[in-house]
């Protein structure tokens, strides 16, 4: 009962379009994972296959060693919330927030009614509100409530919280952390807005154009980027042979964003050459890594972290 997810050569296709391309990754149980990717990078398709919303076109997804597709025991332990949760899809005028909550209460084996009540209050959702009339923020809030109160051993939120306004997003982060420490489980958050949530993640998985770009501990990743600034020649000399994600030049001064840890020898060399070394925020790393102009076709192993 750990909630460990393994993606093995996972592939999702729509006709001739490859949305997810042979992704192999492991998400350990009981942790908060981040899935990062630009819009259209294949996040949603990947999550759909993970949660058995669709059969993989290649490879497979294992939950604690068991294939998930059409596996009752596995799917019962997973909850994927897309947007406002799939309850809202048919939008009959008679369908209200309380119906969505009641349905989840009946069908989710780990549903926590009290927790749902608290969350509904915290996000100021009206139980009698019609699903068809919810604002974007309210739909997001409903998705968050359905996801958190499901207490599913594997809870996946696909950008559901992005429609929340700033105070509600912070409320969501607080609730997520409090809930996770009280009821440890695997949580996977997909997002393209990184700055705000990055600190919540223990691991980060970045996909780009359907491929796995890298996966590893969020803190390791933070240590992996550096901005080297100084006289153009000296910078070029130091970063020669390294993976340069971005390069800017202003007059004689050049600034290279490199990916990969600098060796002690390089740091000493940089100091001696009067170069400035700065850390790079995770979001910037993400932006550079997924920039089609600079991102080269990198073999997965090279970019990935241990």
């Amino acid at each position: 009962m750990t909630g460990r997810l393994e993606l093995q050569d996972l592939t999702v296709r729509y006709g001739d379009t490859v949305a997810v391309d042979r992704v192999t990754a492991t998400l350990e149980g009981g942790r908060i994972h981040g899935l990062l990717g630009r819009n259209g990078s294949g996040k949603t398709s990947l999550l759909s296959a993970v949660a058995a919303f669709r059969r993989p076109d290649g490879g497979q997804v294992l939950l604690d060693g068991e294939p998930v597709f059409e596996n009752p025991a596995a799917v019962r332990r997973m909850c994927l919330i897309r947007g406002a949760g799939d309850t809202v899809v048919h939008d009959w005028p008679g369908d209200r927030v309380r119906h969505a909550l009641d349905l989840a209460a009946r069908l989710r084996p780990h549903w926590d009614r009290d927790h749902a009540d608290r969350l509904v209050e915290r996000f100021a959702l009206r139980r009698t509100a019609r699903l068809s009339e919810l604002s974007r923020g309210q739909r997001s809030a409903l998705g968050v409530v359905l996801g958190l109160a499901s207490r599913a051993p594997v809870t996946i939120l696909d950008e559901s919280y992005i429609g929340l306004d700033a105070p509600s997003r912070y409320a969501f982060y607080d609730e997520l952390l409090a809930d996770h420490s009280a009821h440890p489980r695997t949580i996977l958050l997909a997002t393209h807005l990184i700055e705000e949530v990055a600190a919540l993640f223990e691991t980060v998985t970045i996909i780009d154009r359907g491929r796995l770009l890298l996966q590893g501990s969020a803190d390791d990743l933070r240590a992996r980027g550096a901005a080297v600034t100084g006289p153009a020649e000296a910078v070029a000399d130091l970063t020669d042979g390294m993976r340069v994600l971005a390069s800017k030049q202003l007059g004689p001064t050049r600034s290279d964003t490199v990916f990969g840890e600098l060796t002690t020898e390089q740091i000493t060399r940089a100091r001696r050459a009067g170069l400035q070394l700065d850390p790079v925020p995770l979001q910037d790393l993400f932006v550079h890594l997924t920039d089609p102009a600079t991102a080269t076709e990198q073999p997965v192993s090279e970019g990935s972290l241990r």
């Binding site: 908060i32 982060y173 607080d174 952390l177 996770h180 600190a199 993640f201 223990e202 803190d219």
Partner: peptide
């Protein structure tokens, strides 16, 4: 610590 500073508990 995690909840107060909104960071991952493992961190």
């Amino acid at each position: 610590y995690a909840t107060h500073f909104r960071i991952n508990p493992a961190t």
